[in-house]
Design a protein around this nucleic acid. Structure first.
Lengths: 350, 350
DNA sequence: GGCGCAAGTGTGAGCGCTCACACATCGCCG
DNA sequence: CGGCGATGTGTGAGCGCTCACACTTGCGCC
């Protein structure tokens, strides 16, 4: 650390300001400004002198003043559903890291409920706070629609873990991924696959359900009524009890891994072996998925990378408002583990 | 939405500014300022007129300008270890929500590694960005020490999920919680308890290990060498294979639930029943803990509440710099589920 | 050797707001 | 009925910086 301004400081709030540095270095404040901003046209010796003065005074340029004068805040707002769920939390992490790595700061808004109203309020607040771009992570369907309908102000990226972004963007195709999962089960000989859906106010839940339905229909397999969960293991367990009671059920596709966990326990308690009697498939590939009993077959999506890409697209819009974003499409990978197996009618088989 | 400034706007960046509102309302800019800040001494009719003008112009006060002029940013910086781990993520959520609820904005910094260097860098950056307080979530031990050693600048709260805060604060007593867990196992007749520790560069891992050791010593039970994990299910699995091979192992206390998950699988694969042959206890009570096979006995800590309290303490320091923080101590609750049972020497018992 | 040009440096103004005042206006008392 | 306080309102200055320009120098050139 420096000796922290033992000299007089002109700043109203105690800290040394630009003129203090300028005075000590024997230059004008403008030269100090140029040094701070790495602008050319400063003699090397002068620059050195200014740097030394800054160090001696423990000077730090005021981000706030700089923002006001330049009109740029170098801040990106992130509005996210504030849940303990793996998906949103992971995406958030990717997004935040990417923003910081690009040299911007992050202003976060964690919503307990990401509906229309809170979405609009948050965006409003971030806008008046001067953010240069906004990333929305996993809004509910109506919120996503409302955000897309907003008059174009600051560039925005809506990540709904299922579909697109405002004005083209990242699409994690849960639909296509789900189709692959269902086909995998069908290929193993299962007559059909049951679905445990997430809350349908999320696009992700919808597209996964759609994918499941599409694959079933394409194969001419019967489409039973999907069950409804809330992403939690608890709801998966509840659904599992229902499913376990039905001897015809031989394969279940859960919309996320947490629900699959609950499913696994319910099946186990009912004495139905996985994958001997029932095959289970999840979605997300949470880090624990490989260590469940049995290790879970699931769909992996690279959420951190999704966040990174979204930020890259957003920033290119922020910095070159002319560039049109190029849509990106990411399809989750099927990770086959031990929770899925061949269909064995009425039999038990490991 | 408003008709968004159909009138001329004076602002350099296109948006209407205070003088525009003042002009339209036929008052001075100072009166507008008073209205914005809900200050008394404005006639009700005048206030109404100003409000109407603001609405008509679609005026939003510039947060940046306001910060510069007032010297207050109403922003709290949050530095957190950016992991997918349940603990940090949950605390972060509690902290962010509490800050926002108090009317402050949040500036987040998600660190892939929360060591000394990155801690110092982040604090430095946040300080120059003008935050009025800082919350650090789960720094490594040396980082926590470095933060505490910092010269008093902005108020800071260090949450290390095991111990305290700068200048007194929240203490989640992992030590005492762990002792309870070990005693529970000892009371069930187990001759001793093995420990699967987290990375010891975290205070939380250390205090949990200390609690385990203390309880064992107090009971005169043998203290075997603890195993070392990295919080992940993968590392729990690896440790589990080692433990499963030792027929003397009858009880294991894992420093978090994720590692316990890996443990459970390894034990299962080795044919050692839980809790018949081996009892397992975790830490955190992740939402899935109750739905594992078997449902996991674990220690629950209210991390969201911890975050909330920490923020409350921080803000009271921010707003009344004189008030001394009153230390708070939270002890995790033992949640007994099906993964722990009576000690049965050499026997198998459900 | 006076000119143009680059490199280096300084000056004025202003970003959009809040602070600390000064200034009007009114009712009401002695 | 002059003066006092309360109430409402306006003025000047300045937060700490960046912008756009104006100004110096030194150097090579015809």
């Amino acid at each position: 650390m420096t000796e922290n301004g033992s000299r007089r400081a002109t700043g109203r709030y105690g800290a040394p300001v630009m003129v203090d540095v300028a005075a000590l270095a024997g230059v004008s404040y403008q030269t100090v400004s140029r040094v701070i901003n790495d602008q050319p046209g400063v003699r090397a010796t002068t620059r050195e002198r200014v740097l030394a003065a800054m160090r001696e005074l423990g000077y730090r340029p005021s981000t706030v003043a700089r923002s006001l004068a330049s009109g740029r805040t170098r801040t990106i707002g992130v509005v996210a559903i504030g849940s303990a769920l793996y998906g949103p939390a992971t995406t958030l992490r990717g997004v935040e890291t990417a923003i910081r790595d690009a040299g911007y700061s992050v202003s976060t808004e964690s919503l307990s409920r990401f509906d229309r109203t809170s979405a609009l309020t948050s965006v409003e607040r971030m806008t008046t706070a001067g953010v240069e771009g906004i990333v929305a992570i996993d809004p509910e369907v109506d919120a996503a629609a409302a955000l897309r309908a907003l008059p174009p102000g600051v560039p925005m990226m809506v990540l709904c873990g299922g579909l697109d972004a405002v004005a083209a963007g990242i699409e994690i195709d849960g639909n296509e991924g789900s189709q692959g999962a269902v086909r995998h089960l069908l290929d193993l000989g299962h007559p059909t696959v049951r679905h445990l859906a997430g809350p349908l106010r999320w696009e992700a839940a919808r597209s996964r359900m759609e994918g499941w339905r599409t694959a079933l229909e394409a194969a001419g397999a019967p489409v039973d009524e999907p069950l409804q969960g809330d992403w939690s293991a608890r709801s998966g367990y509840a659904a599992g009890r229902v499913l376990a009671a039905d001897p015809d059920v031989s394969a279940v596709f859960a919309a996320n891994d947490q629900m699959a966990i609950g499913l696994l326990l319910a099946l186990h308690e009912a004495g139905r072996a996985v994958p001997g009697d029932v095959s289970v498939i999840g979605f997300d590939d949470i880090p624990e998925a490989a260590y469940l009993i049995p290790p879970l077959t699931t769909l992996r999506q690279d959420l951190v990378d999704e966040g990174r890409r979204a930020v890259a697209m957003l920033l290119s819009q922020v910095e070159h408002p002319t560039t049109e974003p190029v849509p990106v499409r990411m399809v989750p990978d099927l990770i086959v583990r031990a929770s899925t197996g061949r269909y064995t009618p009425g039999g038990i088989r490991k």
